[in-house]
Design a protein around this nucleic acid. Structure first.
Lengths: 266, 266
DNA sequence: GACACATGTG
DNA sequence: CACATGTGTC
């Protein structure tokens, strides 16, 4: 028996909006710790890891560990039927092949339940090793989203370079080149508007903008984003989910040869 | 000679927005009583009945009963040229085959007149019998609109079931099932936010969501909607038009056999 | 032209 | 958060 009651239902709606374009089907894993998901994107290039800790739920009952395979598009369709301030409860009976989403309006005058078939999904559950990162950039999520969107109108890849002074996002395409530098600024009153760089050593890595732009769909979940970079390691783009956990996107850098391919012939 | 002056011109604009997708051509009937329309939708499944009583007009002159056939799409195009707070006057000379819409801006600084050709339309004017309804539900029109929209992302038909406790809207489709229950709540301060159920006996009927979603285009006309249901009778979805009348949509329930077709095979 | 999306306002 | 508005897409 599983019963998870989330007062801030809009959180779950936003989580689905941010991953449904990346991943078609995925297993949600439920344990005493929390509600989590780990999945590769459909082209097996990026990885998304979600954690919603049990403490963040108003009511959390999970009698035994359970993995529920869902079609994220269908799940998203159902969650769209929840109001933004509805309370969402996820229910599953033991041995059932369905999951039920219950939406309660704040006034309790409207109660909806949506039942969805579960799927069997091969879970390629990868252990994600803890890693040391050469550079960690924290910046406003909206700014990062804007940068990725802007750069993708010029080129297909972004080079993210971190130095002590700041972080530089660069691209090049047929019509020209673009460089956007964000200086470290910790002096702002509001911490969520500051850009903070923790750097062990300079790093410069290239990524496909297509995936970055997919990751930034999580922008509504957090006002800040954390980008962790190390040579040879996948970048981690993390959006913290207040009081509950996080959603993290992993993407391997393009190696130099790949990058060359996308450059226009001179 | 016909001359109808409507101070709140936006009303007429909204009326046309709410029926032009349903009905292509229709006769507007004008008599001493008021300005009315009754027409089947283009696929002859639903019926729309509009009444704007003469008392609701600032000036109402209709020397003799007249029926004016109009292409609602063209009429809507012209009304879109009126500002939302323009005063609209509808004019027709006796024996003329045109109608004139005059728009006066509130400041009287702009006066526009649009002349439109009338059409000859076979009016399949059905007498609509008064009926006793097993259940009458009044609820916020926005909520009804939202429910129909949400359910149509899951299935094609909606089962509306009324009991003393509330009204339930259900659907099923390939991806799962959905039930939305609205409890009766008369206790709210604002009467337009309450859900009121007058029930003689429980009723449960199935309707095509496609038409319901068309009806809910009338939502801007009224903050509440009234849904009148009886077994074997078409449902009436009514939006009252303040001080003037109503727009009513009639839709026959699907019989059980039709409903089965849409269910997924088990 | 309808619909979905994004944005600004109450 | 709901609503209205404007824009882009199909």
């Amino acid at each position: 028996m599983l019963e998870l009651r989330l007062v801030q239902g809009s959180l779950l709606k936003k989580v689905l909006e941010s991953i449904k374009d990346l991943v078609n089907d995925a297993n949600f894993d439920c344990s005493a710790t929390g509600f989590s998901l780990q999945a590769m994107d459909s082209s097996h290039v990026a990885l998304v890891a979600l954690l919603l800790r049990s403490e963040g739920f108003e009511h959390y009952r999970c009698d035994r560990n359970i993995s529920m395979g869902m079609n994220l598009n269908n799940m998203s369709k159902m969650l769209k039927c929840a109001g933004n301030d509805d309370i969402i409860t996820i229910k599953a009976d033991d041995g059932s092949d369905t999951v039920t989403f219950m939406f309660e309006s704040p006034t309790q005058d409207k109660i909806a339940d949506f039942e969805m078939k579960l799927m069997d999904i091969d879970s390629d559950h990868l252990g994600i090793p803890e890693a040391e990162y050469h550079a960690i950039v924290r910046m406003p999520s909206s700014e990062f989203g804007r940068i990725c969107k802007d750069l993708s109108s010029i080129g297909d890849t972004v080079v993210i370079s971190v130095t002590k002074e700041g972080v530089k996002f660069s691209t090049r395409g047929d019509i020209g080149t673009a460089n956007i530098v964000c200086r470290q600024n910790t002096t702002v009153d509001k911490p969520e508007e500051s850009t903070i760089i923790e750097m062990q050593e300079p790093v410069s890595l290239t990524f496909a903008l297509r995936y970055m732009n997919s990751f930034t769909k999580a922008t509504p979940l957090s006002s800040t984003v954390t980008i962790s970079l190390s040579s040879e390691l996948p970048v981690v783009v993390e959006y913290k989910i207040a009081e509950m956990g996080y959603i993290r996107f992993y993407l391997a850098p393009k190696i130099e040869e790949d990058e060359e391919e996308t450059k226009p012939q001179v």
